[in-house]
Amino acid sequence: MSEQDLLDMEGQVAIVTGAGQGAGRAIARELARHNVGGVAVNDYVAERAEAVAGEIRATGVPAMAVPFDVGDIAAVRAANQAIKDTLGTPTILVNNAGNAGPVDDIGFSAMFWEEDPSAWDKYFRTNMFGVMNCCHTFIPNMVEARRGRVVAIVSDAGRVGEARLAAYATAKAGAAGFVRAIAKESGRWNITCNAISLSTLEPPMPPEQLAEYVQTERAKAYVSRYVIRRYGKPEDVAGMATFLCSKAAAWITGQTYPVNGGYSFAI
């Protein structure tokens, strides 16, 4: 990109977790448009990670698939070494992996006090400990390089609360608090750490099926809670994530930015 690109990544190598589909895929593809040195695409499904890496390579940008579960710190560390060996040292980390990780999709549960405690683990493993595992592994690269970007995708469930999603909301709130703490620890090395708080993105359906779904009374009732009357799109997330990873956000750290169509407001 030209030197006029305010979103220039200055040749840094990026890793995006949970990037085999949805918002993660959009973030990885958007970063690739702004002078990254390469993009490591993570997903716990290897085929999805490789497909997105292939899309990025087709644009002329180096990319590789790194399939692993963010809840497995040994696997995260092995991926870090593999990225170094293939693309170079990663100094941009987007912690996008979420929901319930490789176990199953997120879903509304019973009231918290009626829920079996074993149901909590899957949310904390991915949304809290997964973020911690990745930061513990990749931030030393940034300290050594004396620059870096960390972005965590959290949720309005954690920022304002959501009934029957207590464990998920708590894990996401914990991740946002963790990001603020490491922002204070790492800022002296020109490392910024921020979070993006999402509400609901459009369901992952084929275009024709999605077009039918958004016209249903159920969907209309759901999006009526949003000032902008639609579900979020992966591209809505990608724009903010790319900004926070770029040189344009060099003096922004420790913040949580709602990207939520006006579902909730923040000061």
Score class of each variant (00 low, 15 high):
Glu3Gln: 09
Asp5Ile: 00
Leu7Met: 04
Glu10Pro: 06
Glu10Phe: 00
Ile15Asp: 04
Gly24Val: 06
Ala26Glu: 02
His34Pro: 11
His34Arg: 10
Asn42Lys: 06
Asn42Ala: 14
Ala46Gln: 10
Glu47Lys: 15
Val52Cys: 09
Val52Tyr: 02
Val52Trp: 00
Ala53Trp: 01
Glu55Asn: 09
Glu55Arg: 13
Gly60Arg: 09
Ala63Trp: 03
Ala63Pro: 03
Met64Asp: 02
Ala65Pro: 09
Pro67His: 00
Phe68Ser: 11
Val70Glu: 01
Ala74Arg: 14
Ala74Tyr: 03
Val76His: 07
Gln81Ala: 13
Lys84Val: 06
Thr86Met: 03
Gly88Tyr: 00
Thr89Ala: 10
Thr89Leu: 11
Pro90Thr: 03
Pro90His: 01
Leu93Arg: 08
Asn95Arg: 12
Gly98Ala: 03
Asn99Met: 09
Ala100Pro: 13
Pro102Gln: 05
Phe108Lys: 13
Phe108Gly: 08
Phe112Arg: 08
Tyr123Asn: 15
Phe124Ile: 12
Arg125Phe: 01
Val131Trp: 00
Phe138Gln: 09
Arg147Gln: 12
Ala152Gln: 04
Ala152Cys: 12
Val160Ala: 04
Ala163Gly: 13
Ala163Ile: 12
Ala169Met: 05
Ala171Met: 09
Ala173Trp: 02
Phe178Asp: 00
Ala181Lys: 10
Ala181His: 01
Ile182Ser: 10
Ser186Phe: 15
Arg188Glu: 12
Arg188Gln: 13
Asn190Tyr: 06
Ile191Arg: 06
Ala195Asn: 10
Ile196Val: 04
Leu201Pro: 01
Glu202Ala: 15
Pro204Gln: 07
Gln209Glu: 15
Leu210Asp: 00
Leu210Glu: 02
Ala211Ile: 06
Glu212Leu: 15
Tyr213Asp: 01
Lys220Leu: 08
Ala221Glu: 11
Tyr222Glu: 12
Tyr222Asn: 07
Arg229Asp: 07
Lys233Phe: 02
Lys233Met: 14
Pro234Lys: 06
Glu235Leu: 08
Asp236Gly: 06
Gly239Cys: 09
Ala241Trp: 04
Thr242Ile: 05
Leu244Met: 13
Leu244Ser: 03
Ala250Trp: 09
Val259Asn: 04
Val259His: 02
Val259Tyr: 00
Asn260Val: 03
Gly262Asp: 08
Tyr263Trp: 04
Ile267Thr: 07
